[in-house]
């Protein structure tokens, strides 16, 4: 069982959250000419590597906020959690 520290509610069990995938993917800007490849990269293509992974989770059974979690995909260690609009650099 993962324990995720929601930046709004504190430490909660994994059961309260749902997963939202890679948080580094950016939607192409609206109103601009977008190539098929850009769309392909946004919708389908993912790095999905072993090690540190910045990802989105939603605290579905809690505050319902989307948050960012930096987690190791091999050990499941969670390094830090951020609010969705916080800068992750």
């Amino acid at each position: 069982m993962l324990h995720i520290k929601c930046p709004h509610c504190g430490m909660r069990s994994q059961n309260e959250f749902s997963y939202g995938g890679d948080a580094t993917v950016k939607r192409p800007e609206l109103g601009k000419e977008i190539s098929d490849q850009d769309w392909d990269n946004f919708v389908y293509n993912r790095k999905s590597l072993r090690g540190k992974h910045l990802e989105l989770w939603q605290h579905l059974s809690g505050c319902r906020q989307w948050i960012k979690v930096e987690r190791d995909t091999a050990t499941h260690e969670i390094f830090r959690t951020l609010k969705a609009n916080e800068d992750n650099s």
Binding site: M1, L2, Q14, N15, S18, Y19, G21, D22, S48, R50, H53, E55, R71, T73, A74, T75, H76
Partner: peptide, 12 residues
């Protein structure tokens, strides 16, 4: 349900 290379599972 979340990206993983763990080759071992989680109970939930």
């Amino acid at each position: 349900g979340y990206n993983s290379y763990a080759q071992r599972g989680n109970l939930p």
